[in-house]
Design a protein around this nucleic acid. Sequence first.
DNA 1: GCAAGGTC
Length: 856
Amino acid sequence: MSPPRVLMVAEKPSIAYSIASVLSRGQMSTRKGSTDVHEFDGWFLSGIPVRYKVTSVIGHVFSLDFPPAYQDWAATDPLALFDAPVVQSEANPKAHIRRHLSNEAAGCNYLVLWLDCDREGENICFEVIECTGFAQKRNRTQVYRAKFSSVSEKDILSSMDNLVTPNRNEALAVDARQEIDLKVGVAFTRFQTAYFQGKYGNLDARVISYGPCQTPTLGFCVQRYFQLTTFKPEKFWSVRPYVMQLGYEVQLEWERQRLFDMDVAMMFQKLVQGDSSLKVTEISERKESKARPVGLNTVNLLKVASSALGFGPQMAMQLAERLYIQGFISYPRTESTAYPSTFDFRSILVALSRSPTWGKFAENLLVDGFNMPRPGKDLGDHPPITPVKSASEELIGKDAWRLYQYVCEHFLGSISSDCQYVRTKVTFSVGGEQFHCTGLQLTAKGFTSVMPWLAVAEKALPTFEPGNQLKISKVELHEGTTSAPDYLTESELITLMEKNGIGTDASIPVHINNICERNYVKVQPGRKLVPTDLGISLVRGYQCIDVDLCLPDIRSFIEQQITLVAKGQVDHSRVTRHVLQQFKQKFSYFTKHINNMDELFEARFSQLGNSGRPLSKCGKCIRYMKYISTRPPRLYCNTCEEVYHLPQNGTIKLYKELSCPLDGFELVVFSMPGPEGKSFPLCPYCYNSPPFEGVSVLPSKGGAAGMPCSSCPHPTCRHSLISQGVCACPECDGTLMLDPLSSPNWKLFCNSCSCLVMLPQGAHRILTTDDRCPDCDSMIMEVDFNKKTTPLEDGATLHRGCILCDQLLHSLVVVKHSRKTFMRRGGSGRGRGRGRRSFGGAGGKMVDPKMSFRGF
DNA sequence: GCAAGGTC
């Protein structure tokens, strides 16, 4: 009778091989299949003699998708995808892994799962259980899970002695993630693509994708782009004294470093210049060191490959993969930076000692002894990436050689000694100010001799003694300018993604590749990521509609929700439903407000951004915005990617290059046509985003709130309701404002309705003043009549008075567009509404009937 | 044509 059979399944062929090698002590027979199958005899559990078969999958067996009925883009409403069924299909049909597992499981009595010990691995466990049929036919005691923290003999053997059961909750968390990612990503992607496709001639995108990882990744690039385009350089000054010591001229650093006020900096310069004695107050010497690197993991390899070697992550991984298959480096996909305790450094050093490049260095480490590496983190996956055997450029090619070279240097560096140096700091006092200079002297190069780009620069310093009185040779006032940050480098992006939990070591290169291939960013020399028009418009669009969509938090939210499933705290389908419900709402909101994103596309892609006329300066970036006069009229800031709506049915001009005291935007003036058309100034920013709450706004199309300066309660700005408001409107709750541009047809207009009041015609000048009428609290007006037509006696021209109470002015004003004859609506409480609450502020006075135009 | 996660 043949012995019972045990099927063991690993996540990838190389692990299956390692496990079989350890358990069979190298005595196994291997046959080909979809993946190799290693067979040998051994003992299982409490000493059952068995026949072992060890094979593997190749990552996930299945992947999730929508059923065929939902595959037609045109016929499927993307919103319906949130509630659509999902189906599993074989991830790699050509590999026939499912058939392979089913065949190999036939006749097996036990299943041992050797998948990677993370959530994804746990999920693959259940894929394997399904394929092998162990779920249905056999009872649970026949399925075991091996938990191992590294693929070492010790760990493999000990996990065989401590077999557990697979964790269904962790697997279900992955199921939840898959369904959420699929539905959210596909729904948004199909909707966006359909909406923008063919809409703009020069928008050439096959697909405009959205994803909870790729979109925040793009978000990082665009965020940096905004930082640098809206950067405002600032000048700064620092005092830099120079002293002569033992024939050296030394420049001293200021303890205050720099000041942003030139006058103050100059004052300090004079103080220092005026004090003839500079004194050494302190000399400190400190031994410092720069630590050798921890073991190399994938993400750090990718960063160096990008920043120092100029290889993109995709390319770097391809090279690393090849070096691994050829046996030159160890497995290149690992998160761990800690070496296992049993790690064999010596044999690698022996291998490298044959190298013409590092032979000498490796040999020295062998002879003089090497340092154990710094601790690092152990994620239980694979050891850090190290060389395995010696290579040469001729053997592996130029690019692979450069990557291999780095792996070797990093490995040698990680077991070298730290770099050590002495830092000397000399502190000086002069004119009440503190200055210093520092010197650096290397005592041991350590690892920097094999990683010279990390070397510490030496800096010589002449000897000083405490209490030395020195002469200042000159005192410079250095002027500098703060500089904008540069575009995000790929290496910085990887750091950000890792920090924010966007993607994994294996998927980070994929996401970066996606945003490049989809034409959202371009890689420029120095591997800088420069967002394209499409990338910028997309991110700006998300920011305008629902900023969450492009922030990394969207990923952490999903992760945090599925972690509840993994911990068994919440049911998997409830979490999936709940999260999808939330995304469905976000999706609905997004589709309803897609016009906000479209405005940006319109500006970018139909070249409105080029055809518009430069008009007012943006207060954020101090660059001219473009005035787009076609409906709806708006200003567009090319730099900030912002659209500012303007009132319709009139003309827009710059208002004397005056700017808003609140936000620095240049004011524009809006004029309605005709001699009786009113005109009023407005700040493009405030008009769209009123800075004060509860301000009455004009009705406006295109979503702008519509607050012109005539509704603004700013207490001191000379264009505000407070400065230009004259008295209550006879027609409505509004306030009559002086139209500052109405000369010579001077008029007051209501900031709320169409009421107009014509002031003395032909006056040379009419101004509002700071004074108020003691009787009715209206603003006292100052009228400078024309010399020829002045109604004043003796040809005087200047007259001050209240237009309601002053006999002369009263007789010269005419109310137009007044549907009601001077009757105030409502009772005594009226007129204290939002817009006028700040007006006058003189309490009960405003209920005086004279406040209206009654009696005209 | 679409997501993100495995591995090759």
